[in-house]
């Protein structure tokens, strides 16, 4: 029973980490269709934001909270920079986008290595997040609870933004039918940039949060990138709902398979299951029905 609850908690936590890492991608890839291989490096930029902030603000708790905001801005600005300089020139060339953003990712890794050195740096977690909470006989690290809460907060905020705000309406309109949206007076250029800012900013936030549980090194983004893409693809493009469900589904799946097998085997089995699932449902869990021709 303890084990079951322990693994449920692990699954929930893993799901929230996947969700946080994938949420930004759900916007840039899911909504805009841009295959941004540098998304992992935006996460990494968030990690280092937390590190730099800790050098400036010595109180670990305050620096974490400030970093979440600054991380969003840093990630977002990197995203806007990438979008306006490179990606917007190749919206109809997905393969080029893939290669170029992969290249940008490597450049960013090298920049991080030159600025901060190749060895991992240590971001100290605030004392109110150290240790664990006992829930039904199993100890759940507080850092993981924090990430769960943060993931839920980010999803809620994003959903509210897309549903209720004029900006969200514009984003959805452009996603569903770009031409029609433009003829209705929406600047699709400006909307693209905004969407990219939010999506990349969320990657930065994810990065800040991930320093609580993992290492902060130049290559850290790579470990989350593939998982993030998997979540978005399984969830189905164009909807946040799909991403949320897919993230938690993969989290639970991974935690239970890993418990009964091994970490390496669990990864393989999850991949196989995803391939089988996508054979049956290539569009993912949910799709947006549009009248758009593309």
């Amino acid at each position: 029973m303890d084990v079951l609850i322990g693994q449920l908690a692990t699954g929930l936590s893993l799901g929230s980490i996947l969700l946080l890492a994938a949420l930004g991608l759900a916007l840039t890839f899911g909504q805009m269709g841009v295959i941004n291989m540098a998304h992992g490096e935006f996460i990494m930029a968030g990690c280092y934001t937390a590190y730099v902030m800790q050098q400036i603000v010595s109180n670990a708790g305050a620096s974490l909270l400030i970093s979440l905001v600054v991380g969003f801005v840093v990630g977002g600005l990197l995203g806007v920079l990438l979008e306006t300089t490179l990606i917007q020139r190749m919206y109809h060339r997905p393969l080029d986008t893939l290669l170029v953003t992969f290249g940008v990712g490597l450049v960013l890794q090298q920049v991080a290595r030159d600025l901060f050195g190749a060895p991992a740096v240590n971001v100290i977690a605030p004392t109110w997040l150290s240790g664990g909470v006992e829930i039904f006989g199993t100890v759940v690290p507080k850092t993981r609870l924090f990430i769960l809460v943060l993931a839920i907060a980010c999803v809620t905020a994003l959903a509210a933004l897309l549903k209720a705000s004029p900006m969200g309406r514009r984003i959805r309109a452009v996603v569903q039918n770009r031409d029609l949206a433009e003829t209705s007076g929406i600047s699709s250029r400006r909307t693209d940039v905004t969407t990219f800012f939010i999506g990349s900013g969320l990657a930065g936030v994810a990065g800040v949060a991930l320093t609580l549980i993992g290492s902060t090194s130049p290559t850290i983004g790579q470990s989350y990138l593939i998982d993030a893409f998997l979540v978005v693809v399984v969830g189905g493009l164009g909807q946040i709902k799909g991403t949320v469900i897919a993230a938690f589904a993969l989290g639970f799946l991974n935690s239970f398979i890993e418990y009964s097998t091994t970490a390496s085997l669990a990864k393989v089995i999850v991949f196989v299951l995803i391939v089988v699932f996508l054979q049956a449902r290539p569009q993912g869990l949910f799709t947006v029905r549009t009248r758009s021709l593309v």
Binding site: Q7, L14, I213, S223, A263, S264
Partner: peptide
Amino acid sequence: TPLGSTDFSTIVN
């Protein structure tokens, strides 16, 4: 765990 793995929740359990 695969080299570079970042999630140890299950193993610690």
